[in-house]
Amino acid sequence: MDYLRVTSEPDLAEALSVDGAVPLAGGTDLLVKVRAGVARPGLLVDVSRVESLRGLSRSQDGLSIGAALPLADLLGDAAVRDAYPLLATVLRSLGSTQIRSRATLGGNLANASPAADGALALLAYDARLTLASRAGSRALPLREFFRGPGRTALARGEYVHSITLPAPDANQAFFFHKVGRRRALTIAIASVAGLLSLEDGVIVDARIAAGSVAPTPLRLAAVEDALRGCRLDAALARAAGDSASREVSPITDVRASADYRRDVTGELVARFLSTALRASS
């Protein structure tokens, strides 16, 4: 295994065009995999000093986050925390203080764990990705990025350049709950992140993302569709929970059984809606 530090995107794109080259940002996932022999990159291309991948820029279209910006920097920005409270809440639960010093959103997404916490908030916000390579760049909705555990839409030689969130909506209620064995440093048994827009008690928009309950982090599109236009009440919250249990496809593993994960997902979705109901009335 070799190591190469690059400081510009042209150099990065060139380095990644070689077989076996893998981008290295914070390394908090990748280095564990390398040491366990699960990942065997021929070349680690260090992107942590490519300034154009560490930016944070706001425009009327929203917020663009450099893929290699450490989470601690993102969380350290008060304007980001205020505008995107779900993102801040989710990221504060990701890993530990030590992990957040170095981990990045680009890494969290490219690692493509079904349990990726960061992905849930980004999915709920309808994030769009900019992917780049020697051939140029392209935009891709995050929903189309995950292809399976550890598998993404990244083509060979391509890297995540930035993540763009739409302009914030101050009227959205948000929810995040991760069920695990402990609060810190836990890999989720199941987790749910949600955003809800209500007008006069009627659901205008519901976005619900779930983790650790399918081959990839996913949006519960059927639940969301069924909620849109409905008056939020306790019965609706329970029904949505039941249908969330049906929409996910968890597996049984060392952390929990598939049945338990279905139940937990349903409970979390119901809790999201009943919390929003209480807050609105």
Binding site: Y3, R5, G26, G27, L31, V32, L44, D46, Q98, I99
Partner: peptide, 11 residues
């Protein structure tokens, strides 16, 4: 703070 077991020395 960082976990020095997760930091590549070359970095």
């Amino acid at each position: 703070p960082a976990n020095s077991c997760l930091v590549l020395a070359a970095q």
